[in-house]
Design a protein around this nucleic acid. Structure first.
Lengths: 256, 256
DNA sequence: CGTAAAATTGATATTTCTCAATGAGAGTGG
DNA sequence: CCACTCTCATTGAGAAATATCAATTTTACG
């Protein structure tokens, strides 16, 4: 089987093709059970006991997005929270002249939609096919009201993201192109391992331009750096991903 | 009066010189009243009612740090939360080879010390004299236990910081040196205005190297950009700060 | 097979960094 | 009060990293 497809992260075409063609955004009929949910233990839901989970079940609805579709935009009013269930999102901000900074890639279990302003402060696009669990603000807020453990869990996720954001600032402000790429590959690899277990080949569902916009580089520099790493024997470039040939070397390049 | 000293942000020498010379880090004897606190309505405390505040009062103790002192270090175990009461902190991370990225400047009202690991994920130095309100973890956690409104307030601050962190990623990854400096000056100016009211001259308590490490530039580039802005008539460089001569022009340079 | 999008590669330009020297204030001690 | 020294900031010249522009190759998909 294709290494990328095997992890359900294929770009441009969905392994779950049945929604595509019918419609690019599909809302699943009610009746999904949280107990069956793939991110049951990863997401905010991990703080809920079985009884709560049964109630929670009725608050959210599953929504599918086809590759490239926008889940929400920076300027939109926030009406919902989202739990990413399957697929990958690119989270980004645009400058007025079109320059783009990707502020992160969301993976299953990530919780989106928190804000102070009533507006999202970044946009989110599906990379490949995506499933989210969507919660309207009002009922979610009511549910959380007398469940401080859920609030605590949400805070925990926010604080973790904050820590990652700071790490990324260091990368953007103080690392060379080589270090940026090496650090990205390692970090991505670690996140996927945590999610799906270790694997020889690492799928990169996002395109080179996405990687460039995440690392504050141009697409050409990213491409050249990939090639350089491959020539050094550190990685092997596979279609739709890479293989870490010499992880120690990549770590050395990442300079901790 | 000196414009910088007037705002209590003078660098290198404290307006409250009485602690300095005696000791660089001073713990105030108990008995401080939250009601008198300058950040009463800014900090996490704003979510507490008068009765709670009286109880809260006993949890924290005020600690003073002289200019340049480290409040906590990245590698330290976290034993406390901190409420910045007076002064400015630089929050930064270091790479093994000494490169530094300043991830933010903390101002009065900011709440520090949240984390998921049991360690701080950045270091904090006093820029000029600083007063913090320090809370030991255990009693603070106990206090928060049955006060979800305080937890909600803390979450609110975390989410706001996250939003700022993302804005800063855009700056670091996608803006030119000129845009970085202009954006920094405007942002700093706005933060101080919100805190102390608008003012013609804007104190910059941090040094040029701090600004450079915040913007992902070198000190020379920052210095040159300041000079350039001054020659264009956009700003005037004052000792220990600047004056926004032509705010519209600076905003144009910041490119939204 | 043909076309379009994405990725790679090369040549050159630009920005920012590096290295080096100079200048300006603040604190010190005579 | 005045040299002296220290740190911080500024300025200049040249170097290096990365961006830009342009062409080519590869891959995807009808």
């Amino acid at each position: 089987m294709h290494p990328v497809g095997a992890l359900g992260l294929m770009r441009g075409r969905s392994a779950l093709g049945r929604w595509i063609g019918a419609s690019v955004v599909t809302i699943e009929p009610n009746g999904h059970l949280c107990n069956d949910c793939a991110v049951r233990d990863l997401a905010v839901c991990s703080s809920l006991d079985p009884a709560e989970l049964r109630e929670f079940e009725h608050l959210g609805r599953r929504v599918h997005f086809a590759a490239g579709k926008t889940v929400f935009s920076e300027e939109d009013m926030t009406t919902s929270f989202y739990n990413l269930v399957d697929g990958v999102l690119r989270l980004y901000k645009l400058l007025p002249d079109g320059r783009r900074q990707i502020v992160g890639f969301a993976l299953p279990g990530d919780f989106l939609g928190m804000n102070t302003s009533r507006r999202h402060n970044f946009s989110a696009d599906a990379i490949g096919a995506v499933t989210v669990c969507q919660f309207a603000h009002a009922p979610f807020d009511r549910f959380i009201e007398d469940r401080p453990h859920l609030l605590r869990r949400i805070n925990e996720l926010a604080v973790r993201e904050l820590s990652q954001a700071r790490d990324h600032m260091v990368l953007l402000g103080r690392r060379s192109a080589d270090e940026k790429v090496a650090t990205f590959l390692l970090g991505w690899c670690r996140r996927l391992s945590a999610l799906k277990g270790p694997s020889g080949t690492v799928p990169l569902p996002m395109g080179r331009q996405d990687i460039a916009d995440y690392l504050g580089l141009t697409i050409e520099t990213v491409s050249r750096t990939f090639t350089k790493l491959e020539r050094q024997g550190a990685i092997e470039i596979i279609h739709g991903g890479i293989s870490l040939r010499d992880p120690a070397r990549v770590e050395a390049l990442a300079a901790a």
